[in-house]
Design a protein around this nucleic acid. Structure first.
Lengths: 102, 102
DNA sequence: CGTGTAAGGAATTCTGACACG
DNA sequence: CGTGTAAGGAATTCTGACACG
């Protein structure tokens, strides 16, 4: 779908510039399972624009005092919601398709 | 228009990984006026996905033996073509708009 | 002209740890 | 728990130059 948005090509220094989050924080959120950067051959972390957006969301929730563990659960629920929605849309499309076949 | 595609956030090492062009070549094409990366505060070059696509085009033309100066002219013509096309489209839209006013 | 490379320095990134709270 | 920081090493990037053709 989104070819540029999800490509992991941005180093941590640039992510720090864009989000304002310290490298320490960015790496910590990774260790807590909130984000999943890729690595270059020699181990340098690479992030996508999606990761950056996610980090901004995380930063907002942290400002509200929400702990990383809670944030992780919220993110998982968001994904579940998306799956449910997609599943329903697919179900409706199939229903329409089946009606046409009648 | 394209928010991610044109954002300059990719370091030269990643561009090298993606395009296969050596850092030397990438910097040389810049010195010849074919690409225009931005810089971080301390001088590290930053490229966009558009720059990467442009570099692939340049690489193709170089393989055909076309010199950088010629490539530069071709790129400028492409931009001119685009401008002309955009101008014409705008002209047609205006013409239709004016017709409706009659 | 276009590209490789060695050179020297500066800035980046990485990990594991101590600190505070 | 979440974040800062100093530590030491490894990898990156930068520039200007010499080389070949």
């Amino acid at each position: 779908m989104s070819s540029y948005k999800d490509k992991k090509v941005i180093t941590i220094g640039i992510v720090n510039e864009i989000t304002g989050l310290s490298c320490r924080m960015i790496r910590y959120y990774e260790s807590r399972g909130l984000i999943f950067p890729e690595r270059t051959e020699r181990g340098t972390r690479k992030y996508s624009f999606s990761d950056i957006e996610l980090l901004m969301e995380i930063a907002n929730k942290r400002e509200e005092g929400i702990q990383t563990y809670e944030i992780k659960k919220e993110l998982q629920n968001e994904n579940k919601d998306r799956e449910v929605r997609d599943h329903m849309i697919r179900g409706q499309l199939n229903a329409q398709f089946n009606l046409k076949k009648l």
